[in-house]
């Protein structure tokens, strides 16, 4: 098996209040077949053997579905290519290349340590309306409502969001509109989601603003980095739904 060599610039920061700085590491003899996170594992285990503190980074599934991993690789949130940081492979880099790894820089995602940030703002947005209110046991037979395949497929494409936060990290305004739009589109397309449609968009957008995310000014950097391939159309859908929600509220049609 062939090996490669990289020059790494890794962000170290003890805590949210700490200054933080890049450390420089020569990563030698990295198997060319390994993934980016496996390369970081190797580096961390070497640091550990030398009695130094490894660089903290988050990951879990390592197959691009859980949304745990999050970092900016050479300026790109979630790294080069499609997919999450855990799906980046070293063979995509050239031998000897300098690679800079830093955390997401989003005000609403405070830094926890090194490359790890706190993305709980996204959970709070969902809690404010990103669901269909129902209660277990009260559901009608699943076949009672027919949902044409194109509608089901479009809902699925929006539902594929892994909640990784790369959209906000890529956006010059730190907007979370791709994330919010994905959920509003997923539920808004389905017949089950109609009852709360207007209220949902309105409350999610309000929470998004309260959390300190910016607005969309059509850069589409979010779409470019989204590992789940969520399309920017969901933002147009969100804008429509939000305006409808505001109007309905103005005339007293929702509380």
């Amino acid at each position: 098996m062939s090996t490669m060599h990289f020059h790494l610039r890794l962000w170290k920061q003890k805590s949210a209040t700490d200054q933080g700085e890049f450390i420089e590491i020569d990563a030698k003899e990295i198997p060319s077949e390994c993934s980016f996170l496996e390369m970081l594992d190797i580096v961390n285990n070497r640091l550990t053997r030398e009695g130094k503190e490894p660089v903290s980074f988050a990951s879990d599934c390592r197959e691009g579905i859980c949304g745990t991993c999050h970092m900016v690789i050479n300026g790109v949130p979630q790294g080069p290519g499609r997919g999450a940081a855990c799906q980046v492979y070293m063979r995509k880099f050239s031998n000897g290349q300098t690679i800079t790894v830093e955390p997401y820089r989003v005000g609403a995602f405070p830094i926890v340590k090194d490359l790890v940030v706190n993305r709980s703002a996204y959970d709070r947005i969902i809690r404010s309306g990103g669901f269909i209110s129902e209660h277990t046991g009260g559901a009608p037979d699943a076949s009672a409502t027919l949902i044409p395949k194109p509608v089901a497929d479009a809902a699925m494409d929006a539902a594929a969001c892994i909640g990784c936060g790369a959209c906000a990290a890529a956006c010059p305004n730190s907007s979370a509109m791709l994330f919010v739009g994905a959920k509003v589109t997923h539920l808004g397309l389905l017949p089950q989601g109609q009852a709360e449609r207007k209220k949902r968009a309105r409350s999610m957008v309000r929470t998004m603003q309260e959390e300190g995310f910016g607005n969309c000014s059509n850069y589409y950097a979010c779409e470019a980095v989204c590992p789940a391939g969520v399309k920017a159309d969901v933002i147009s859908m969100l804008n429509r739904e939000y305006i409808r929600g505001e109007l309905s509220e103005a005339v007293g049609a929702i509380d």
């Binding site: 669901f131 269909i132 129902e134 277990t136 046991g137 009260g138 559901a139 009608p140 037979d141 699943a142 076949s143 409502t145 027919l146 949902i147 044409p148 395949k149 089901a152 497929d153 809902a155 699925m156 539902a159 997923h186 539920l187 389905l190 089950q192 989601g193």
Partner: peptide
């Protein structure tokens, strides 16, 4: 098992469908 599918559909789980709309 059947209730689970009902429950999930009512939450908005986008299971695969036929062109006619059936699961």
């Amino acid at each position: 098992s059947g209730n689970i599918i009902d429950q999930c559909v009512s939450q908005g789980v986008p299971f695969a469908r036929e062109y006619g709309g059936q699961l």
